[in-house]
Design a protein around this nucleic acid. Sequence first.
DNA 1: AAAATTTGACCCCT
DNA 2: AGGGGTCAAATTTT
Length: 317
Amino acid sequence: MERNSNGREWEKMKKELNELMTEGRDYAHQLKSQLGSTSSQESREHLAKKILESYHKSLTIMNYSGELDQVSPHSHGTGAPRAMILIIKNHISSKGISICISKKSMPRWTRKVRIAPGVVIDRALDDGFSWRKYGQKDILGAKFPRGYHRCTYRKAQGCEATKQVQRSNEDPMLFEIIYRGIHSCSQASNVGSIIPVQVLEPNQTQEQENLEIVKASLDTGHHNYNHQAHLHQTLNYPLPSTLNLESNNVMLQEKDHNIGFLGSTSYSDANYNFLASHDAGSASHSTSNSPSTVGLESPFENFGPSHPFGGFGGFYS
DNA sequence: AAAATTTGACCCCT
DNA sequence: AGGGGTCAAATTTT
């Protein structure tokens, strides 16, 4: 039994490592192919960064694997618990800074969608992200099964975002969707601008991409497109508890305290401070503009101006 | 052929 | 023990 469990974990580790290294290799290839070309400095830097990231993550896993036994003192008799992998993954999730995030500490929030008669359910439930269903389960006391979905790009990009969809007992037209984790995939930066009315995520973890954009635009002096305002809006206009969208109602219900995940890099901290302190002033800007762009699900609105990172439960070192 | 879904087995927690 | 979440093989869809 012990052997089994350990074996399994080991297999997962190997798999994880394999993915990381493969990813790194792919980035290296890309970089190589760009060397001769006129590609931007930025894009090359980005690739280099990705490569280093892969190395770092891999090394961290390998280093950890040697001490699994000590690391999990209360593993239940058997080898490293499955959560270990998660912890490790999260631990290394931002280069340089150690952050351990357990599954539980991932941001989590709920959205309710009421389907109007005649509306195609799939369409109504679409939030702009692409999801892959990985399970369905009958839940005690629920008439309808619960669907489990994860981000389509989990494998390709390691995006950990997840959602559960539960059709309501009493009101079969109502769906409760629980989101967990923030999209770190490439979708994260696109969804929202492409999809008019839907979910915008002020991801903290989508970090790299967004921050890079912001940073880049600041560096260049081109304040072309105001990502910050965008984020602000999302942060500061939490949401009406009920929103009327064309034919269906979407309401965001509750965001949990679990705002654990912050892929905090050195400059992301600065950035969020900036965001947090800046908001007071710009908050009132054109609410009137496109009603079509509404920050919907933001687990983050509750980091008040005072303590952007106040109650994070997810930080360890 | 590849991507997505279905579904029973399996794992972890209470 | 049993409930909820996830895995992964089989199956379906694209």
